[in-house]
Amino acid sequence: MDIGHYTLVGFAKSFGLFYLLALAAAALLYACWPANRTRFDKAARDIIEDEDKPWR
């Protein structure tokens, strides 16, 4: 069974596309999951609260 170079490249590009789409969907689901809301809200508040003080 001989697999051509262009066949292998096409398969790799297609697999990579679907892999990245699935990874992006998983990251979006994680960011929008209701249980993570308090963690992200706390992180957003911590950045703003730390800006009022001098660095040292």
Rank of each mutant, 00 (worst) to 15 (best):
D52W: 12
P34L: 06
F15Q: 02
I48E: 11
L17W: 02
L23Y: 11
I47E: 07
K53S: 10
A31D: 02
F15N: 00
R56Y: 15
T7P: 00
A12H: 01
A22L: 12
Y6M: 10
L23V: 13
D2Y: 05
L8M: 15
F40K: 08
R37S: 12
P34H: 03
N36G: 13
A44H: 06
R37L: 04
G4E: 07
E51R: 13
T38W: 09
K42E: 15
P54F: 09
I3S: 06
I48H: 08
R45N: 10
L23D: 07
A44N: 12
E51S: 09
F40R: 14
I3N: 05
V9E: 08
L29N: 09
R45D: 02
L20T: 06
L28R: 15
C32I: 05
A22N: 05
R37F: 02
A35T: 04
I48R: 13
L21Y: 00
A35Q: 13
D52Y: 14
D2M: 09
L23K: 15
K53V: 10
F11S: 01
P54E: 07
L8K: 07
G16S: 15
I48M: 05
E49H: 06
D52I: 08
D2Q: 10
I47F: 11
L17F: 02
D50K: 13
A22R: 09
E49P: 00
T7I: 03
E49K: 05
D2C: 08
E49C: 01
A43H: 08
A26D: 04
N36M: 09
K53C: 06
I3C: 04
T7W: 09
M1R: 09
L20V: 07
P34T: 02
L28I: 15
A31E: 01
A12N: 01
R39S: 10
P34Q: 01
P54I: 02
Y19P: 00
P54D: 13
A24M: 12
L29S: 12
R45A: 12
E51A: 12
A31W: 03
D50I: 06
A44T: 08
P54T: 05
M1N: 10
M1Q: 12
R45H: 04
F40Y: 15
C32M: 14
G10D: 02
W33M: 04
A35V: 07
L28S: 10
C32P: 01
F15I: 06
A43T: 07
Y6G: 05
E51L: 14
W33Q: 07
W33L: 10
D2R: 09
R37I: 03
L20G: 00
S14F: 01
R37P: 00
T7S: 14
G4S: 12
A43Y: 11
E51G: 07
P34D: 03
T38R: 14
L20M: 12
I47C: 01
I47W: 10
D50Y: 03
